[in-house]
Design a protein around this nucleic acid. Sequence first.
RNA 1: GCCCAUGUGGCGGAAUUGGUAGACGCAGCAGACUCAAAAUCUGCCGUUCGCAAGGGCGUGAAGGUUCGAUUCCUUUCGUGGGCACCA
Length: 938
Amino acid sequence: MEYDFRKIEQAWQNKWKENKTYAVSNESAKPKYYVLDMFPYPSGAGLHVGHPLGYIASDIYSRYKRLKGFNVLHPMGFDSFGLPAEQYALETGQHPATTTEKNIATFKAQLDKIGFCYDWEREVRTSDPQYYKWTQWIFLQLFNSYFCNTQKKARPIADLIKKYETKGNKNFTAEQWNAFTKKEQEDILMNRRLAFSKYGEVNWCEALGTVLANDEVVNGLSERGGHPVEKKKMRQWYLRITDYADRLLEGLETVDFSESMKEMQRNWIGKSEGAEMEFGIVKHHASDMSGDSQLTTHNSRLTVYTTRPDTIFGVDFMVLAPEHELVAQITTPERKAAIDQYLHYVKSRSERERLAEAKTITGCFTGAYAINPFDGREIPIWIAEYVLAGYGTGAIMAVPCGDQRDFAFAKHFDIPITNIIGGHFNGEEANATKDAVLENSGFLNGLFMKDAIGIAVNKIEELGIGKRKVNYRMRDAGFSRQRYWGEPFPIIWTDGVAIPLDAEELPLELPHVDTYGPGPEGEGPLANITEWVNSPQGRRETSTMPGYAGSSWYFLRYMDPNNETTFCDRKASHYWNQVDLYIGGTEHAVGHLLYSRMWTKVLFDLGLIGFEEPFKKLLNQGMIQGSSRFVYRIAGTNQFVSYGKKHEYDVQTLHVDVNIVDGVELQIDAFRKWKPEFADAAFIFEDGTFSLACNTGAIKDMKYICGVETEKMSKSKYNTVNPDELCEKYGADTFRMYEMFLGPVEASKPWDTKGIEGVHRFLRKLWRLFNDDLKGKVWNEDKGSDAELKVLHRTIKKIEEDTERFSFNTAVSTFMICVNELADMKCHKKEVLEKLLILLTPYAPHIAEDLWNQLGNEGSVLDAAFPTFNPALLVELTKEYPVSINGKLRTSIALALDLEQPAVEQLVLQNEIVQKWLEGKAPKKIIFVKNKMINVVI
RNA sequence: GCCCAUGUGGCGGAAUUGGUAGACGCAGCAGACUCAAAAUCUGCCGUUCGCAAGGGCGUGAAGGUUCGAUUCCUUUCGUGGGCACCA
């Protein structure tokens, strides 16, 4: 009986479905374990071999945990709202719901072929009204909450209203509040809501007709499509994620994410601690006769933000952002023309140019001076575009000896530089050290900069000219998209006030539209449907929520997917709790992961769930790149020259389908069939021989070698490999194990189908331990020998360790070694093989189930218990040998003889170098280790 | 520029805590079986000296710590990723 993987896999996949083998219950006495994949966006292109990498890893781990006695939740769903479906609708007129439905069906069929253990009963789709009903509901929770700065948590906005009604706040009394109009009250509340609306500068992309989030903009271009992006003022919804900045940072300490992932999030949040301080401003007016200048003190004060208040005596100039409100007030008449010219120049420059020419130094002196409060020095105030209006106070104090940008600016405009760090400053470049001893620094002289920071801030606070201040780089998250295919906002605008829908009115379903094109004045397509927009209560919000809305909480819905009365029953979320293992790519490091962490914290604050970090452990799978193949066509001909000979000709390099290349050797016939234009292609082979167009035979020994390059996997580069085809050709089990065998899950690597044969051979070899191709069944019920049990238990130990540490590639190797050894020993014993099958189940579930049943077992191997490793079988003996050391007799040497490596023995010694064994067996080499351990080679 | 990874045969990679470097697989070479092919099996497979036994050198490079370093430290180079006027 041969290994007929097609039959086996089909049969078992059907059986799993019929028996609901993977159904998961919320009621179980077992401990729980929650394994989650980042759910996919169901694109029209289907899966390529890169997608399943993480899914296979999570599937292996889920099955492993189930064998280990856990009740495992391992669901799958679809992030089905999003731009591509809408772009496609725009082009073809097909409703996104239709194409999405179709794409999901394709994805599910592809996923099922690989044999994943998903409980499809728990599937979620973000575009399903029964799902987005709760996305809208959570949005309303955000809308109806504020961040309490004393308790550092979200609270119902009703609490805040009550406080205003009874106590007022620092800006108004309770009486004043109660006298405000509804609109005035709502405007004040809007400033506190966690989901709020305001006019803001947004990233407007003309080409896409929509607003993009910061992380969707790369270098001034849209991430998708690479269209130019500009600033535009619009009423937008935002999430007040900045209020959670500190807790998002603190939470990172409690989760098991990779260091680089945490670093990326910290970087994005960009917390910096420093001080805000005020400076007085003076203007000099050229006087008419004496030539002396006349001094005017200005009323306004200049507030700057700095992280280095210790460098206050090194401030040689101030820089305001060109947009800074003080610019107009402080500019002297003499400088007005120059400043206006500079402002005009800045305005003419797009975001892109500013970023592209970041190194170019520009700026303009305002004519005004700030006064250093400690030594009374007059400090010229400049404006320059390198200072950003949106960060800190939009104004900085420049310390050229300590900051490279300030240094470059000072050099460029010939501003004299004060050195406050003595020998640490070489006059050639700035030195941002904190270790220098301060000089020329008044009351800070002689102090280490590190110590001076605190002392300076204290002094500043004492004098009432500034205070400690923490700044964040992160901005509140834009939450509106001028798009159709997203969740509609459950909001109606009445007299400029946003009125939320009642929970009973949810879901607010997406209405049908005739066109997916943008609405008037930058609004989304929904604005075109007047009958929908104009409800009796007022005008509906026409923008929709961004892609990350639905994905910010989907892990909760899996726990209780069909609940119609709440987003997730408290009992279910209490049972399943945090996601124990979350697997996905690094591309969501700052977007999805930050948003879902925030939502979780809000839901926790409001008492709706019992934990505030969604993901306990995050495992980042690497990207699988494509390995492209190239052929070289001699320009103007239909002749192709092999890689080694291409330099002798003038050639065009063409991508060739990687699937018709064996390693690097082109399959000539397949190539001729690939595209009609190549049907009569002629070849010059690697050895220089030549093949005529018509000659397809007799080229056995002549090889056409292709060029190779690693690129992103994409259809247009003909380097995609379809998992369906591999499953068809080698089987899902081979495919799964090969993907794992390729290397560590976390590593990015190019796909290469070549090695898959090796894994396939291994599974066939395994099969032959049970069945002979001719004789049929060969397994027997004999007792396993010591040697065989030793092989088995070494494998148990290794597989358990490898799986626990997600080292799936070495686990596959372990299986290969085990099967090779058992085959060498001609071991066909049920006692040994049965255990091996249990170990193998997570990796190759189909063949394991089949052989398990062949051994006479009923039901699924998943319900078997993971075998226990018996250490006694590995360590054969522990004895004490007397040993002669430097001629003297020593005893008490414990010898742990590990039969895995009979040539090597590890010893634990008490003293110096061992020379000889007393019992005549002289070791070849003895390596002594500090009173501890040595290696002995016999 | 800053931050984080990472560098091992022809290739993917292993070496888990500082202890036989190159497991396992691919490719390659030689052989067995076969009329032949496929399948399967056996041996070789970092480099160098040697008939061999055996030795020298080898984990990007240079130093250091250690009895011992792919592993730890310093410097440096290459590759990949993230951030990029954030004061």
